[in-house]
Simulated scan of single mutants.
Amino acid sequence: MREVTEEELKYVEFWENEYLQQIYYLLKLDKQKMLDGFNTKEEIKNDWVAYLGDNTSSFATGSERIFYWLFNQLGKPNSSPVGSDMFFETYNAYIHIDIKTVTLGNIGDFSRNIFVGDNQNSYIGNINVKNKPIRPYKGHLPTFYTKNDGTKKVCLTYFITILYNESNLDIQTIVIMCMPNGLLSKVYGDDIINPGKNPGKIRYAYPKSSMFKLLPDTPKRIKVLLWKKDINLKIEMKMKFIKEIYNEQID
């Protein structure tokens, strides 16, 4: 396999950043529409509240419906069974967007890293576990997709993570992040993939790849779409890294 040039790596990062901005501004423009969508559950609350807690993924399911609605103009949906919750094709890229929901009771699943499925990333590296042999890792997504006609399009991976109060479904923060394409493993190394709870699985240590290293002015790979104004101080301290990014945002 030939060596990937720095210009090719910069190309990947350029489009990772371009689509991160597009996703962020699309949602920011429709922020009230998004929040109104989240609140539609309240209109029929008496019909589901008795079952809250029986299925912890219920909030995730509802959130996915709202984002599908908001992203209907992002690109052409793709039906591949291997991919993220949302998978779109644009004129020059294939975009994976996975929605992740984390409760306050499990805030540790968000504060330092997030779970990433093999079908949700193209990263290539090594999982380093203390006092154990190094485990090679390769996500199931390609770094570039190749269509039947030979056309190649870069594979881009994004996560929208929602932290919410499981007792009342009150949203604390919504964060959009871009995980580096597998070709960029030579830039970001093994530090950004932490061992998951199960052997061979990973967690994405997003604070260790918080910037686009190859782009001018190193813009952030993370955008904070929402931060609750009266968030509990203990939560704010645990999410200090995200709060700092939120404070730095000028748009």
Rank of each mutant, 00 (worst) to 15 (best):
N148G: 03
L104I: 10
M86P: 04
Y158W: 09
T61Y: 06
N121E: 08
K152Q: 15
F87P: 00
T143M: 11
K45L: 11
E43W: 07
N126Q: 10
R65P: 00
N119E: 08
S58T: 10
T40G: 02
G108S: 11
S84V: 02
K147N: 15
Y25N: 11
N113H: 14
D149A: 09
E18Y: 14
I95N: 10
Y24P: 09
L141R: 06
D30C: 07
N46I: 00
Y24S: 13
N121G: 06
I127M: 07
T103P: 01
Q73Y: 03
Y94S: 08
A93W: 06
F87G: 00
F59W: 08
I44A: 07
S58V: 07
L74R: 02
T61G: 02
K130C: 06
Y25F: 15
N92M: 14
D85L: 09
N113D: 15
F67W: 12
I107R: 06
G83S: 08
N46D: 05
K147V: 06
R112G: 04
G125V: 06
N128H: 14
M86K: 03
F87N: 02
T146E: 14
Y24F: 15
I99G: 05
K153C: 05
S84I: 04
I95S: 12
T56F: 03
N121W: 04
N126R: 11
D118R: 06
I99K: 08
Q32P: 00
A50W: 06
S79M: 04
N72W: 01
L20Q: 15
I162P: 03
I97W: 10
E43G: 05
L52Q: 06
W69Y: 09
L70G: 00
Y68I: 01
S122E: 05
T151Y: 11
E89W: 07
K152L: 07
V129G: 11
T40H: 06
K100Y: 13
N113C: 15
K138P: 00
K130I: 07
T103R: 15
R112H: 10
G150A: 01
K76E: 12
N148T: 13
G53R: 02
K100V: 13
H96M: 15
Y19P: 11
V82M: 12
I124W: 00
Q22D: 13
G139L: 02
N106R: 09
P81D: 02
G125I: 08
D85Y: 08
I44T: 13
K28F: 04
M34A: 03
N92I: 15
L26C: 10
K28R: 12
Y145I: 04
I66W: 02
W69K: 03
F144L: 01
G53Q: 01
Q21E: 15
S122K: 09
A50L: 05
G75P: 03
K28L: 06
H96Q: 15
